[in-house]
Write a protein that binds this DNA or RNA. Structure first.
Lengths: 230, 230
DNA sequence: TCCACAAGAACTGTATCCAGTTTATGCCCC
DNA sequence: GGGGCATAAACTGGATACAGTTCTTGTGGA
């Protein structure tokens, strides 16, 4: 595994888990030192993270964790609705009993992970990926993944705060049931509803003052803390 | 303007215009020498182009111009339908007389550029951007732009070969007319139809043996010519 | 006390160098 | 003449060095 990949995975994990909050500056040199590599591969990792929307380069070309406004988060959820609706629409007629089995087993895994938000979210994403994989549209899956990544930090904050509240999988079981009927527009509606529900939860959470209030409310270029820079 | 940007613009232009065909290897050193810079900024430009889907790194980490299969191109057009439908749907209720004027003037510009495919395509993209800008969804516009870029080379080949055949703007005038009624679902249908028409044209062109037949039919890792490598 | 400015520190962009890997060349043997 | 292997060339990833820019800090004057 090359240094670039190491830096990429490291930073991606820190950002998506929220350990590096929005607007936190990222020093390529500090990161490199922490990982025992130079700042060059870190820089290249940062470029890739920029392409995924997780990192932004400021006016001074200095990288920091991308801060999304509420408006942008709503927008990104709407983009997800558009992309994932397409995916499930194409997947629906291609659903097989084997895939339904797989979805059932995945629901079990999600159930078992309810105590661990991070693990649950991973299982949850896998659940959706199983469905989208059936669409046989790999480029679309790429787009979906990218969009998902860019709001992951906020979703993670949300489920972390509420400890996975009313989403114990009931809604996901519904989606699996609807898919069994292989009806594209039915599946589409169910999924759109599902995503919009999640969106309202996240947005409400962010508006309720929880979450990174200053980061969301007033995305500043400069950041005070020099500690948690890594 | 820094060296990285120079390399990025240079390569992007070469790829989107088709001067660098699919599967053409790209030597960072050769490009750098041609531009009077070192290969380091070229490398970083290549990473960004990879994020936009125009460049791919092979198994040996060597970059080449991304080759899309017909299946992928169809997929990317379907993604465009999903994203741009959303955009025009949101834009429709926000259309103002000023925007309609702007669209009218843009139609004139397109008309004047019919003799120059490259120029016409640029004006065409601007026409669509005017509409999407009205949606007030900047992140969505980013996604649309990225998706558009990744099939641009094939669209360019198509309109270059047919010298802008039956798309003299009549269909675009229709879209502008529909937008005047500010009806989201009407606008959505008209645009989806428009994109799918373009898609069929491009796909038919590629299937008809014109276009980069070997690149499309059999995307090979290795390439014979060492001439047009730049 | 507060502002302005200047020196110093920190950071970015880029070139160059080195090591490790992959590809090409050419020779030898069959 | 053709295939296999060894050597050489080319290329990539990464580290380091250096120049130019931006930020920080501290001092002096109002």
């Amino acid at each position: 595994m090359n240094a670039q990949r190491v830096a990429y995975n490291h930073l991606k994990h820190l950002i998506m888990s929220g350990e590096l909050p929005a607007n936190a500056p990222i020093s390529a040199e500090v990161v490199g030192r922490a990982l025992g590599i130079s700042r060059m591969p870190v820089r290249e990792a940062l470029l890739q993270l920029q392409a995924e929307g997780l990192v932004t380069f400021g006016a001074n070309r200095r990288p920091f964790v991308t801060a999304r406004t509420q408006k942008e988060i709503v927008e990104l959820f709407e983009i997800r609705v558009a992309l994932e609706s397409l995916a499930i629409e194409r997947a629906a007629p291609r659903i097989t009993p084997a895939i339904l089995d797989q979805l059932g087993r995945q629901l079990d895994r999600m159930e078992k992970a309810t105590s661990d938000p991070k693990r649950w979210l991973a299982r949850h994403d896998e659940f959706h990926d199983i469905i989208y994989a059936a669409s046989d549209m790999p480029r679309l899956m790429d787009e979906i993944r990218r969009t998902r990544y860019s709001i992951q930090p906020y979703i993670f904050m949300y489920i972390n705060a509420y400890k996975i509240p009313e989403m114990p999988g009931a809604e996901h079981a519904t989606i699996a049931d609807v898919l069994a009927r292989r009806d594209p527009s039915l599946a589409r509606s169910a999924l759109a509803q599902h995503i919009r529900d999640a969106a309202s939860g996240v947005i409400y959470f962010l508006m309720s003052g929880q979450g990174p209030a200053p980061a969301i409310a007033a995305p500043r270029q400069r950041v005070v803390s020099k500690e948690k820079v890594l």
